[in-house]
Design a protein around this nucleic acid. Structure first.
Lengths: 234, 234
DNA sequence: AATAATAGAATAATGTATGATCTATTCGAT
DNA sequence: ATCGAATAGATCATACATTATTCTATTATT
């Protein structure tokens, strides 16, 4: 019961054992401790994480399979370059998937679920973006309530993977005031649509929510890029 | 120019170098030479592919990241169990993604593209399902013409990954006569809609096409399961 | 002299080999 | 049926060989 389940990316939080090398590297990529485009040298990582090179290489291969690192033959691994195109791509996929997941949620939602959604939303509003990191966690929790129980594990895991990437990026940028307002408003609209059993409207709200989030991230990336030129050029 | 590009799954066919261990294991999983649910013991595979255990383990980790194998801590790797739920899950995702990809294709399609589509379709009709393997290749080529140039590489690669899995499964089952007719009809409808620049209709046809394909596979799986009971039970 | 070509060293990826340790499962004895 | 030893196999550490890439210094050419 206390075993980690490295196959499923979703159920990490319940683990009690110390994180595996894979989890640590992954976390360090997501939180940008390994910067985008940075080379990941096996020897360095082995020393950094206090293991031999063997587990490092395996972790990197797994991360490559998941799309977090890219590898070139005989030239090793790099953290995937997360640029505007990258974000646009996964947002476009999410705009398709999340509304579909939401529709199904509407069809099975209970009073308890809605109460929980409202509780998380209350936390979000109380926090009011004071701590970006904590906001990110609450926001993730909010949407996870909707997606996590879906029968389509593939879709749910895809969402989760994309979510973590986006969360990692967002953490590096400020959230504009207008975007903050939109987030709160859309969450409220979503709860309302779900309560009203209006699947179509809920789906539409989610689509707008995801799209807005993506647009905001891409805009922030553009701003940042214009301010400081890239230091990780090829 | 003649380097393989193991990061991108799409561009394998151009490679001249001998396939990597990863590619071989992957191919053997997809073509069911490694049966679903089969244990993948590192030592056995090392002998089978004529390498040491190290590359094997790395290949397995990558395949795990891509979802082709599942791993349990201290219990090694298994070929992912491809059951009806699995197929349903990825079909549901494809029903969302493929119409979206198709819509964009309609917006950029040229006469040459349509001619190529018609040529492949002619080959398909001429073959008339005589050789399942060859039909699978032609059918893949047909859809690849539509998806492969899409700017959203994430979505295209997701399609390709799903495609290969489905192709591998299909190869194991016969295609019913009614399904054959539907495939030909839907392809023709699709070409027509694309020629007419009718993105919505093209998208609708594709959605129907994918859904029908999924339903057919799932039905065939059910038939097969009822005939011979599973020999790889846990 | 300036530039291009080349050789060689340094760096690092990739592959092999082997032993140690840990875990899960099997099998036998109680 | 339960316990404990035996076994299989995964996991990890280590060392080393091989190969590809990158950088530098030397040589060659114009």
């Amino acid at each position: 019961m206390n075993e980690p389940n490295p196959t499923s990316v979703l159920s990490e939080s319940t683990s009690e054992t110390q994180p595996s090398v894979y989890e640590m590297i992954r976390e360090d990529i997501i939180s940008a401790r390994h910067e985008p485009n940075a080379r990941l040298k096996v020897a360095d990582l082995a020393e950094l994480y206090g293991t031999s090179t063997n587990p490092i290489r395996e972790a990197l291969q797994q991360l490559r399979g998941e799309g977090f690192v890219v590898m070139e033959p005989n030239r090793g691994a790099r953290v995937v370059a997360i640029d505007e195109d990258f974000v646009r791509d996964i947002i476009e996929i999410e705009v398709l998937i999340e509304p579909a997941l939401t529709k199904w949620f509407v069809s099975i939602v209970t009073d308890a679920d809605i109460a929980e959604l409202k509780a998380v939303q209350a936390d979000i509003e109380k926090l009011n973006f004071a701590d970006p990191r904590q906001h990110g966690e609450l926001d993730t929790k909010f949407h996870q309530l909707i997606y996590d129980r879906h029968y389509n594990r593939h879709a749910a895991e895809l969402w989760w993977k994309h979510r973590e990437i986006l969360r990692a990026i967002s953490r590096r940028f400020p959230t504009s005031l207008s975007r903050r307002q939109a987030v709160l408003r859309e969450h409220r609209e979503l709860i309302e649509a779900i309560s009203a059993q209006n699947a179509e409207r809920a789906a539409a709200v989610v689509a707008r929510h995801v799209e807005g989030s993506g647009r905001h991230i891409i805009e922030q990336m553009g701003v940042a890029r214009r301010v400081k030129p890239p230091k990780n050029s090829i």
